[in-house]
Design a protein around this nucleic acid. Structure first.
Lengths: 227, 227
DNA sequence: AGGAAATTAAAACGAACGTTTGAATGATAC
DNA sequence: GTATCATTCAAACGTTCGTTTTAATTTCCT
């Protein structure tokens, strides 16, 4: 499906995508006008429609540029871990690290602009638009299924349905953490500096999420007869 | 601050707020036009500006109608728990339950429309607009501080900074879970039915979050010398 | 160098936006 | 019943939106 050759981007297209990442992150898709965007990118107003076709197609291009490589990297790291383990199930911590590490690494990438994208991505997971949700769903599908299967092997004692929920929770934690990297933080005092220390954040997230994923399963048992 | 009397809403205002909740949840603030909104509410186009002043003021009213009572209820439940405990620190599970229970209860409230609001709220936590973020920040401020202090007493062995992060993660999990109640779910198979079973979801969340909050603190120690 | 193709530029398109206006209608008090 | 206030209504306001058009310019190939 991603076999079709990706034609290289020229400078105008790159400038548009960079400006779009930042403005979409700051003001949302509908809150960003083509005039703002092309002004920030220092290109002509018509350039977006010429190079990408429409605003919607630009939005898709913004995600494709980063998300496909990110998920490819996630899968490559999963391959590497599974090869190392030689058939044995992986530690949940390792799987969490492989999944969230790719996103967190981009936060530190100050000048590459990945930081803007990661924050945009965190926000977009809860975006109302059905178009965007299905787009993200498709782009994540393979990666999610591979990781879900790996987690299932890693945590055989957690019932399948319970595990699915916990992975859902995990994804939520990551999503919110990325989106809020320097925006709202409702927990007063939790924001240490202007920029996250990605290494420390990674360690904190892995601790928190691993404990959650491995939690003793009291819920599904205790509720089973409570309806 | 919330001492000023809240004047009761007439039917037109209620219909507008209900329609706004649903449309804002489905299409976002900027993606919802006054013409859509007033059509759905079956009121005249000018009614929003007449009763609320502007679209922005309507957005604020949407949150005020539900959020102030929700947080009051959270604080009342916290008061009740602390009174029961008679000075002893509370169990983390009880605190989590008090915080998330109010939101989850509204999910089941199918006809009251609270369901729409809760999902809208989950999305808005990561909204790009600074206006909205500061609005939510102010509306949550007292509640958050009370709960933060209660969690600190409940979990004295968790370092203050680490605890702040974990509460941040907890909030993210809740936010995403509310926002995605039937929208995107990237974990295939995790969505059991069209509607959540709030009781079961509550139990699952408490297990997951309590384990995360209580996790053995490996991160802050192991990273301290790694910079 | 010259012609074809790709890109940029300036201007305009119709549509939709949030808001305002002023008259019509409804309810309330005397 | 009539004056007074609140609310509803249809219409229009000026602005901004995403997109298109047509011409100018640059780039690339032989």
């Amino acid at each position: 499906m991603s076999l079709r050759a990706v034609k290289p981007l020229n400078e105008t297209q790159t400038r548009i995508l960079d400006a779009a990442e930042e403005l979409f992150m700051q003001h949302g898709f509908e809150g960003t006008s083509m005039r703002q965007l092309t002004a920030k990118a220092a290109v002509n107003l018509a350039a977006v429609n010429y190079h990408f076709g429409s605003k919607d197609a630009l939005i898709e291009a913004v995600f494709r540029r980063r998300l496909d490589p990110m998920n490819a990297e996630r899968l490559a790291e999963l391959d590497r871990l599974e090869l190392e383990a030689a058939g044995k199930p992986l530690a949940a911590e390792a799987l969490i690290g492989a999944f969230i590490g790719v996103s967190l690494a981009m936060i530190e990438d100050g000048r590459g602009g990945g930081r803007n994208f990661v924050r945009l991505l965190g926000r977009t997971y809860t975006d109302p638009s059905k178009t965007i949700r299905t787009l993200l769903g498709h782009m994540y599908a393979q990666t999610m299924e591979r990781f879900r299967a790996a987690f299932a092997r890693s945590l055989p004692e957690v019932p399948r349905e319970e595990l699915n929920w916990r992975l859902h929770f995990m994804f939520g934690t990551l999503s919110y953490t990325l989106a809020a990297t320097d925006a709202m933080n409702l927990i007063a005092g939790a924001k240490p500096e202007d920029r996250y220390d990605a290494r420390q954040l990674r360690a904190r997230l892995i601790d928190f999420l691993a404990a959650g994923l491995l939690a003793r399963d009291a819920a599904s048992a205790s509720v089973k007869k409570a309806a």
